[in-house]
Amino acid sequence: MKFVFLTALKTEAKALIKEYDLKKSKNNSFFNNNHFSLFITGMGKEQTLKNISHFLSFYKDLDETIAINIGIAGGNPKTTSLEDCYLINKIKNETNNDVFYPDVLIEHNWEERSLITTKKAIEVPSTSYPNIVDMEASHIYASLIKHLPSHRLVFLKIISDHMDIQDWKKIDVDHLITKNIPAIKKWLNKEEWKFLKQRRILSNDETKLIIKYFNRIRLTISQQHQLIEILENYKKRNNALPVLSKHFKYVPKLKADRDKIFQGLKNEFSS
């Protein structure tokens, strides 16, 4: 399983980069090291949407990735404690009233809270913000849910203030993140994450090889889909794919020849 941390600020990223020994990649704001990586989304709606779109353009392992938005956030003094980390179970976008519910499946030791994503930082606590406020979570969820399922979107928020901050520079962001890293690390080490991968019948290597064969005999897209389904069925029934190479040696020159090969493959592997 792979994990990508999404932070809004560089200062939020610093402790995670150090802990996981992440290296800067050629892609802007992206750091990685084997199974862990980190991407800095920027603050607020516009930056988040633009940067997440950039992230999706180069990140290739979405099928086996858990995205974790970690960051500091404001907390209602009645329901949150400073420096504590909370797992978010409901995200509301204050601007358009969209509401999202990330699946919470794996045991954890944090308390859970709901969160409201606001346009501006909230500097006065009120009943309108009963738990936690931030400026990115709903935009991250809305952008990523088109590419990742709900059970692979995680939101962890560390309370930096009680919506009463006067001087943002006085917040020791690095300390807040560093303090919570041991618990985060322990949680991500759980075996259960591997069950959340995208289910696949054909491995990546098998798919690549099959597509190479399909291209060689120039199957239509519809023919490719049909054969992939037939080969998936075959693999499930027999626990392995058939030997395919012999069927793709001859390169047909006419459509009719190609269709004949296709029909032959269909008949052979369907039964």
Partner: peptide, 26 residues
Amino acid sequence: AKIIEIEDYKKIFNKNGQDFQIQKLS
């Protein structure tokens, strides 16, 4: 149990990006 108040059950029951078998885990 964590009690989470919602407006309309369809917003969670029919939400995008669900996996029936994975949700069966919890």
